[in-house]
Simulated assay, not measured.
Amino acid sequence: MKITYDSSVDAAYIEFKSAKEVTTIRLTEDVAIDLGANEEVIGIEILNASKHLSLDKKEPYIILEKLKAKVA
């Protein structure tokens, strides 16, 4: 899993796995889900992320519980 945040556009993306082709389903104006083959969830896009995720745009952070982190 990979989580990215772009403060210049205030967008977050949670990628569960990579896929060459996805179908995007927009749940709200700010939230979309990318589906791959067999309708498996590939990723979630969140626009206006600082509002929806209570992020500090200058210093966003996440808390990982019971997970190991790999720095890319």
Rank of each mutant, 00 (worst) to 15 (best):
S8L: 10
A11K: 15
D34E: 15
E40F: 12
I25F: 11
K70F: 11
V31T: 04
K58G: 03
N48T: 06
L53D: 08
A11R: 14
L35E: 05
V31G: 02
I44A: 03
V22R: 01
E29W: 13
I46Q: 01
S8E: 14
S54Y: 08
K2I: 12
S54I: 04
L64P: 07
N38S: 14
N38H: 15
L27T: 00
K70M: 09
L47N: 12
A12Q: 01
D10H: 03
A19P: 01
I62C: 10
A37Y: 14
S18D: 15
V9P: 07
L67P: 00
I42S: 01
I14P: 02
I44Q: 02
K70H: 09
D56S: 10
I33T: 02
T28E: 06
K51N: 10
Y61G: 00
A11I: 13
T4R: 13
I3P: 04
I63E: 15
A72C: 00
V71P: 01
N38P: 07
K58E: 15
D30E: 12
E29M: 11
V22Y: 03
D6Y: 05
S50N: 09
L35D: 03
M1I: 09
S54G: 05
K17D: 14
S8V: 06
A37K: 15
E21W: 02
A11D: 07
K68C: 00
F16G: 07
V22D: 02
E59L: 14
R26G: 04
S18C: 07
E40G: 04
I63L: 14
K58Y: 09
T4N: 10
L64W: 10
K20G: 13
